[in-house]
Structure formats: C-alpha cells, structure tokens
Write a protein that binds this DNA or RNA. Structure first.
Length: 272
DNA sequence: TTAGCCCTGAGA
DNA sequence: TCTCAGGGCTAA
C-alpha cells in the first residue's frame, strides 16, 4: 500500500518530468467514486493549466497548477500513477488519463479497488478536508512535538501512528517497521512508553522513511514507480508480512495480531 | 473509541 | 462460492 516513501518517490519523478508542462487533453475512462469532484470539472478545468510544482502532503500527491488551482491524488490501497504510451485496451481499472504539451505518452491513474481519490480545487475554494486536517509530516516533525502530540493519548501506539490527523504519512508497513526498530510493542499505550523509547521511535520513523525513499518505496500490493518498475524496500522489511518467520534479531517467531481492524506484525521479545 | 462501509482480486 | 484485506471516512 502506498505510504509516504512511495508518494515521495512519485513526487520526485513527476517534478522532474512534468514541472512547467501544460495539460493538453484529459481522458475520463469511467466516472467512478475515485473522482472526488464531478469528472466534468477535470475535463473543463485542466486543459491549458500548467504544472508549477509537484508536492507531497502526507500521502497525497499534489500538483500545484497556475491560476491558483490544484490537482491532487491519493493512491488508497491499489492506486497507481503511471506513465505509458497509451491506455491498455479494455482495461477496466483506468480512471483518468492526462496528456501534456511537448512530451509523448500520458499520465494514467489506475486503481483496482477504487479506494484512491482524484481531487481538484482552486484558491477560492477550500482544499479537501482530508488534506486540511493532516497533522505534521512524519519526516518533518521534531522529537519534542512528536512526544507532545502522542504522550497524552489513550489509544494504542500503533493505531495512533496511523491517524493522519496526528502525524501524516505513515501507513501500516512503516508504522510496524518503525515500532520494531525502536523496540516498542504496538499495543503499548503512550503514557506507558518511557521517554527514551519515545525518542527512539521518533528516530526510527525518520530512519525507516528515509531509507525507504532511497530504495524507491515498497512494492507490496500494486504500488509501482511511475515507469512501472518496482520499489526495493520490501526486501528490507523486518516484520511486516512476516508472521511465523523468525525475528532476524532474536529468532522468536514474528506474530500477527489485529489492532483497530488492521494487521500488526511484531516480535514479542524485541518489542516491549 | 470503535465498528462498519466502500471495492476488487486472491485464496480457501 | 465465500471470505477477507485495508485507508479514510462516517455513524454509533
């Protein structure tokens, strides 16, 4: 599932490829729920707009366009933004295609499970609630802010890390990997986590995210880079998806439990 | 704070 | 044929 490193990888790729380019044509393949404003708004509003900058806000990929307008994508579980020469004929999962001036090929948004979203708004309108409510970015938040935000919460640390209003960008994979690296049990309540461990967790989050960006993200379900190639960080996962395998640290079998409706992988010996 | 919903492919 | 995963949102 695409999280901060996967989106960041795409941002870097699209910034290079598309900054300064103008949209010439918009294809709406099917009017699905991934269009968070009516498809006609994209068809009418996008042609002629130039991409000034490509940014990331949490797990959202945001194209800042000229005339104070914004196009944003959320990849959900299985969303992909890929560059291709043309649409596969009869592909039932394509939603949007964009063509740009002076460059062959198209940018396609493809999403099998349709949990993703495509957004468009202008400066006069409010940005989508999901973007406005985002907490500080997981790569930018300071150790002090991190502790302040989480320390007083009552929930379990794993579930809290996934709450995008508290800190943005983490998903199931990187939350589990960060908890493992810092030796924190995902079921722990924040007030029971010692200060030093809190700092270790904050440090582990940064370390895991930066490392994942260097490797081009993790390809687990459907995520691929903009050219269709796979990320490499899935080879470096130490607990995620490894239930029943031996912990690389101590040999204890990795467990899988469900927290807040999401699976959590951890080593019960290394993580206390 | 938690359960349920959306949606589809994969696996039992 | 049935069950299930899961990010983000909504309702209870």
């Amino acid at each position: 599932m695409p999280e901060l490193p996967e989106v960041e990888t795409l941002v870097l790729e699209f910034q290079k490829k598309l900054a300064g380019r103008t949209v010439t044509a918009v294809s709406v393949f099917r009017k699905t729920r991934v269009f968070k404003v009516p498809a006609e708004v994209f068809q009418k509003g996008l042609p002629g707009k130039r991409i000034e900058e490509v940014r990331r806000r949490g797990k959202f990929l945001v194209f800042k366009l000229n005339r104070e307008s914004f196009l944003a994508f959320h990849l959900g579980m299985t969303g992909r933004l890929v560059w291709a020469a043309k649409a596969g004929s009869g592909d039932p999962h394509l939603h949007l295609g964009l063509q740009f001036e002076g460059i062959p090929g198209q940018l396609f948004f493809r999403d099998i499970r349709r949990f993703g979203g495509i957004y468009f708004w202008t400066e006069g309108e409010t940005a989508p609630a999901g973007i406005l409510r985002l907490g500080e970015d997981a790569l930018k938040i300071s150790s002090g802010e991190f502790k302040k935000i989480f320390k007083s919460r009552k929930g379990r640390i794993k579930s809290l890390l996934l709450d995008q209003k508290l800190v943005s960008g983490l998903g199931n994979i990187y939350a589990d990997e960060s908890l493992f690296r810092s030796g924190v049990d995902p079921r722990r309540r924040p007030f029971k986590i010692p200060g030093a461990k809190f700092e270790a967790l904050h440090g582990a989050i940064r370390e895991v995210l930066k490392e994942a960006i260097r490797f081009g993200g993790s390809s687990i379900d459907d995520y691929v880079r903009s050219d269709g190639s796979r990320g490499g960080f899935q080879e470096r996962h130490r607990v995620y998806g490894k239930a029943g395998r031996a912990c690389g640290n101590c040999g204890t079998l990795i467990r899988r439990i469900v927290l807040g409706g999401r699976s959590s992988f951890f080593c019960s010996k290394c993580q206390q």
